[in-house]
């Protein structure tokens, strides 16, 4: 049976999911909605997704990606077959190979290979899924980060979180559906596009919570205003907008007022 004859969601492999991002995911959700076939899927248990992107973390080769062959080649010139037809940042001529200096052992019932640098992690590794098959030919920070987050090394595409809110929406009445926390002094190399909405409406972009100042820009009242006084201005806005609504009849007016109330609750 070819893949395409499967159920639109079950039949989509991870490769389809990431490669065909484009509108593919949206189509999947739409197809789902139209056929009403969600009964055929296991009931969803996940309520939210937490996704950590750790730019500048230690190499997986020192932590959980055991490469015994590489250790054998430690200090030796890189074999031709690995260099042929490939491109790398900064590397010219034939570089030397660098294997990990740390000891790896198998842990847990799953027998997962982990390095000695992860003593606690090695005790809980049976509760963790490690995906070892993800690769990319992007060798520079910014495009590689964009690739991980948007499925495309170029700017202008929607990030994973934007797709999730576009496809699934949010049940949270008091917070935006897609929230981004950054730590450290700098934004990641790929910039704010890593949580951007690309060609999707900008309502789906991640709301960036900052580690200094207001967590969300413009969240706090301006100097001199208070929350009590803000409530009074919102009440006045509601009454005046209601007059406008009565005269103009445009439902957008109510929609705007609802956003002001959400802003107040935030």
């Amino acid at each position: 049976m070819s893949e395409t004859n499967l159920h639109p969601v079950l039949g989509a492999t991870r490769r389809h999911f990431l490669q065909g991002c484009g509108l593919g995911l949206a189509n999947m959700f739409l197809a789902e909605a139209q056929t009403g076939s969600s009964a055929r899927l296991p009931a969803a248990k996940a309520k939210s997704v937490i996704y950590l992107h750790m730019a500048g973390s230690p190499s997986q080769l020192e932590l959980f990606d055991y490469k015994p062959e590489l250790i054998k080649f430690n200090g030796k010139p890189c074999p031709d077959e690995l260099l042929k037809g490939k491109r790398f940042a900064f590397i010219k001529g034939v570089p030397k190979m660098l294997g990990t200096p740390y000891q790896f052992k198998q842990h847990g019932q799953s027998g997962t290979w982990l390095s000695e640098l992860l003593p606690h992690f090695s005790e809980v590794v049976d509760d963790v899924t490690l995906v070892h098959s993800m690769t990319t030919d992007q060798f520079n920070h910014a495009p590689a980060q964009l690739f991980v987050q948007t499925g495309n090394p170029r700017f202008g595409y929607a990030s994973l979180g934007a797709w999730a809110t576009y496809g699934l929406g949010t049940e949270n009445q008091d917070l935006p559906g897609f929230v981004v926390l950054t730590s450290g002094g700098n934004n990641p190399d790929g910039g704010k596009s890593l949580w951007g909405s690309g060609f999707l409406p900008s309502v789906h972009q991640g709301v960036h919570c900052r580690s200094q100042g207001d967590p969300v820009l413009f969240l706090s009242e301006p100097e001199g205003m208070t929350r009590g006084l803000r409530r009074k201005t919102l009440d006045a806005l509601r009454d005046l907008n209601a007059l406008e609504q009565k005269q103009q009849g445009d439902p957008e007016i109510e929609a705007r007022m609802a956003q002001y109330e959400l802003a107040y609750r935030m």
Partner: peptide, 16 residues
């Protein structure tokens, strides 16, 4: 694409 979000309200209410 015009959107309508709480961030817009926060901007015009509180942006210094």
């Amino acid at each position: 694409i015009r959107t309508n979000t709480p961030l817009q309200a926060l901007t015009t209410l509180n942006d210094p």
